[in-house]
Protein backbone atom coordinates (compact mmCIF):
# COMPACT_ATOMS: atom_id res chain seq x y z
CA UNK A 1 0.00 0.00 0.00
CA UNK A 2 1.30 3.44 -0.91
CA UNK A 3 0.26 6.85 0.33
CA UNK A 4 -1.54 7.43 -2.98
CA UNK A 5 -3.59 4.26 -2.45
CA UNK A 6 -5.02 5.46 0.82
CA UNK A 7 -6.08 8.98 -0.20
CA UNK A 8 -9.59 7.93 -1.39
CA UNK A 9 -10.38 6.28 1.97
CA UNK A 10 -8.75 9.11 3.89
CA UNK A 11 -10.87 11.63 1.96
CA UNK A 12 -14.00 9.71 2.97
CA UNK A 13 -12.90 9.84 6.62
CA UNK A 14 -12.29 13.59 6.55
CA UNK A 15 -15.65 14.28 4.91
CA UNK A 16 -17.42 12.03 7.42
CA UNK A 17 -15.76 13.62 10.45
CA UNK A 18 -16.49 17.16 9.26
CA UNK A 19 -19.98 16.29 7.98
CA UNK A 20 -19.15 17.45 4.47
CA UNK A 21 -18.76 16.06 0.96
CA UNK A 22 -16.43 18.57 -0.64
CA UNK A 23 -13.12 18.16 1.18
CA UNK A 24 -10.35 17.38 -1.29
CA UNK A 25 -7.18 16.18 0.36
CA UNK A 26 -3.70 17.07 -0.77
CA UNK A 27 -0.45 16.22 1.00
CA UNK A 28 0.30 19.77 2.14
CA UNK A 29 -3.17 20.38 3.63
CA UNK A 30 -3.03 21.20 7.36
CA UNK A 31 -5.79 21.04 9.97
CA UNK A 32 -6.39 24.77 10.26
CA UNK A 33 -6.95 24.86 6.46
CA UNK A 34 -10.24 23.02 7.04
CA UNK A 35 -13.17 25.11 8.33
CA UNK A 36 -14.42 23.76 11.68
CA UNK A 37 -11.03 22.33 12.64
CA UNK A 38 -10.39 21.84 16.34
CA UNK A 39 -8.52 19.43 18.58
CA UNK A 40 -11.56 17.16 19.03
CA UNK A 41 -11.83 16.82 15.26
CA UNK A 42 -8.20 15.79 15.22
CA UNK A 43 -8.92 13.11 17.83
CA UNK A 44 -11.90 11.87 15.79
CA UNK A 45 -9.79 11.73 12.60
CA UNK A 46 -7.04 9.73 14.27
CA UNK A 47 -9.53 7.27 15.78
CA UNK A 48 -11.34 6.83 12.45
CA UNK A 49 -8.10 6.39 10.49
CA UNK A 50 -6.82 3.80 12.96
CA UNK A 51 -10.03 1.79 12.65
CA UNK A 52 -10.20 2.05 8.86
CA UNK A 53 -6.59 1.08 8.20
CA UNK A 54 -6.13 -1.29 11.12
CA UNK A 55 -3.18 0.59 12.59
CA UNK A 56 -2.39 1.84 16.09
CA UNK A 57 -0.50 5.12 16.34
CA UNK A 58 1.40 6.07 19.45
CA UNK A 59 1.45 9.62 20.79
CA UNK A 60 4.99 10.29 19.50
CA UNK A 61 3.79 9.37 16.00
CA UNK A 62 0.76 11.63 16.37
CA UNK A 63 2.91 14.56 17.51
CA UNK A 64 4.74 14.39 14.19
CA UNK A 65 1.56 14.85 12.12
CA UNK A 66 1.33 18.35 10.74
CA UNK A 67 -0.12 17.71 7.29
CA UNK A 68 -2.34 15.20 5.53
CA UNK A 69 0.85 13.93 3.85
CA UNK A 70 2.38 13.21 7.27
CA UNK A 71 -0.72 11.25 8.28
CA UNK A 72 -0.79 9.25 5.04
CA UNK A 73 2.92 8.41 5.30
CA UNK A 74 2.50 7.29 8.91
CA UNK A 75 -0.40 5.00 8.02
CA UNK A 76 1.62 3.45 5.19
CA UNK A 77 4.58 2.89 7.51
CA UNK A 78 2.40 1.26 10.19
CA UNK A 79 0.11 -0.80 7.95
Amino acid sequence: MTATDIYPALTEIFNEVFGRRDIVLRPDLTGPDIPGWNSFKFIDLIMAAETRFGVQLNTEDIDRINTVGDLAALIVAKA
Binding site: I43, I46, N58, T59, E60, I62, D63
Partner: peptide, 15 residues
Protein backbone atom coordinates in the same frame (compact mmCIF):
# COMPACT_ATOMS: atom_id res chain seq x y z
CA UNK B 1 4.68 15.82 26.90
CA UNK B 2 3.36 17.22 23.66
CA UNK B 3 -0.16 17.70 22.32
CA UNK B 4 -0.78 14.03 21.53
CA UNK B 5 -0.11 12.90 25.11
CA UNK B 6 -2.79 15.39 26.17
CA UNK B 7 -5.27 14.42 23.46
CA UNK B 8 -4.88 10.69 24.06
CA UNK B 9 -4.14 10.45 27.79
CA UNK B 10 -5.31 6.85 28.08
CA UNK B 11 -2.55 5.78 25.67
CA UNK B 12 -0.01 7.37 27.99
CA UNK B 13 -1.43 5.38 30.91
CA UNK B 14 -0.88 2.18 28.93
CA UNK B 15 2.55 3.21 27.60
Amino acid sequence: LGRADRMFPARVVAR
